[in-house]
Simulated scan of single mutants.
Amino acid sequence: MTTDLLYLPPLAYFVAISGADKVHVHADAKLSRQSYVNKAEILLTNKRETLIVPVHGLRKKLALKDVKIDYHQKWLNVHLRGIKSAYGKSPFFEYFYDDLEQIYLRKPNFLIDLNLDLLTLCLKFLRWNVSLVVKEKEEEGDQKNDLRGIIHPKLLTSSDLVYKPYPYMQIFGPNFVSNLSIVDLLFCEGPAANEVLNLSRK
């Protein structure tokens, strides 16, 4: 299976890759300004909040492997504070937050490393035995089970091909907000996250 390497991906991403034993991501993929590659959505007091990782060279359509994170902007504290504000009182905050924070505090230079480390951690939390393979360039056969471009904030109908929202208990408000970052589900549901993902399949 081939897919994009996203930043703290939404639930539709995990529904799409569930059951795969190997997931290929491409280091030479061109960065899209509108994608989830450097942004994630969490829930704060009844509204979606978008966390964006600022990067150098976004306008130059660089390959993902060449995109550097911009630490001159104070995004790191904003993201960590945002996650704490959103999920500090959630049932499973203490189980997951410290490991998540450690990845941020390592301050990887490149976006591909941040995304890969966070995705690896989320798969570990889910206890999925998935092998992540980073490929340097396109190879024959990569188009088989190719999900690149499917999970995209501007292409909600594409996500609908694989994902149907299944409500679970969230921290803020009575109205369920669907397809947030996987951290929303992990902090709120912990071990039950897998059941929710299974019930979210089309």
Rank of each mutant, 00 (worst) to 15 (best):
T157E: 13
E138C: 06
L43I: 02
S159C: 13
Y163C: 12
K164Q: 11
L185G: 01
K74T: 10
S158G: 01
L186W: 01
S178F: 05
D70P: 05
D99V: 09
V162Q: 08
D70N: 13
K84L: 05
G88C: 06
L100T: 12
K89N: 15
V53S: 08
D160W: 15
N46Y: 00
N77K: 04
H56F: 12
H79S: 08
E139C: 12
V67L: 11
K68H: 04
L161I: 12
L118G: 04
F172Q: 14
K124M: 02
P91G: 11
K124I: 02
L119I: 10
K107L: 11
S159V: 08
F110H: 13
E101A: 07
F176D: 08
L111S: 07
S159T: 06
P54C: 12
S178P: 14
R106N: 08
E101K: 09
Y166Q: 13
Y166D: 12
L80H: 02
L185Y: 10
K68F: 03
T157W: 00
G88Q: 08
S90T: 14
E49M: 10
S90H: 07
K137H: 08
D142V: 07
I150G: 00
K68R: 14
I52N: 12
V130N: 04
E189N: 10
K107D: 13
S178I: 11
H72P: 04
N77W: 03
D184N: 07
D98E: 09
E49Q: 13
I151W: 10
S158Y: 13
V177W: 02
P153M: 14
E138F: 11
Q73Y: 09
F172A: 07
K65D: 03
